[in-house]
Amino acid sequence: ASTLAFLEHSSSQLTPGSLNTVTAASKLGGVTALLAGTGAREAATAAAQLAGVEKVLVAEDAAYDHGFAEKITPLVAANVAKHGFTHVVAPASSVGRGFIPRLGAALDVQPLSDIIGVESENTFVRPIYAGNIITTVKTSDKIVLLTARGTAFPPAQKGESTAPIEDAETADLSATPTVKFISEHLAKSERPDLGSATRVVSGGRALKDKESFDSLVYPLADALGAAVGASRAAVDAGYADNSLQVGQTGKVVAPELYIALGISGAIQHLAGMKDAKTIVCINKDPECPLFGLADFSLEGDIFQIVPELTEKIKNA
């Protein structure tokens, strides 16, 4: 195999999902990394030091900013044509999910999304039905396109050598459609990133309002050094920001410890957190479905239990 890993960067840093993607790609052999957009060259120096990365290609051009699939697709296609890559792996992020299928249409191949395992050069494991079923799929395509689920692969570590950095093959963007960037609203937080945190405290609808969400969930998360998450019901009710949603339609997390406060456990929420190593559920409803999945269940009123738990963890 000859594998190209498309990596993302933000403020010259590789995104956490990119580190997981390098690990997924290295299961197929040596990896060539590709970085595109403003700041790509700086991020490339970090990518060059990762174990498994043999070469880094850089396309430092503002045309690739914001990860628009219309522009990234011809860039990746040009580099596949030039270097003869047999595999292309991208993070299962909004950018990766956006361009990999478009690239599939351009190359006439059927990609595999959100892989959680690599069995061989042409056989991969992926979840379907919101993670309720796991399937192993073999592809007959000559070029294999993949997106990798971050939580399924550990982040790549710094290696012993530094890979060479070269300019990527340029692409002709003249006939590509244009999407204009207007604005972005990204939640800024000092807390660990939800997608890669080792501990997560999530709140549900039982928190009743945004004030209670803020006064109960955040202090417990801070006491544990945890990221904050939320159920879809809590997000829809306005208690927490969209970006905090854990579930099939939000973030998929797999932390060491997941504490669910007042979350009943709809199927779509379970799809986002059931791979956590230890799950704690605190809920006053004895029929709460999440009790069936949790390692430790505590039945009771979150408004009394959470402040006590926060205090005791702080003082421990």
């Binding site: 191949v109 059927q110 595999l112 056989t123 979840p127 993670g131 309720n132 079923i133 796991i134 399937t135 192993t136 799929v137 073999k138 592809t139 007959s140 395509d141 059931k274 799950i279 009790f291 069936g292 999945l293 949790a294 390692d295 430790f296 269940s297 505590l298 039945e299």
Partner: peptide
């Protein structure tokens, strides 16, 4: 199509949890 399903399975169930008081 290009894909062949080799196998399908249900994820292993989590070990039963315990209730704390």
């Amino acid at each position: 199509g290009r894909l062949e399903t080799v196998s399908v399975s249900e994820p292993p169930p989590r070990p039963a949890g315990i209730k704390v008081n």
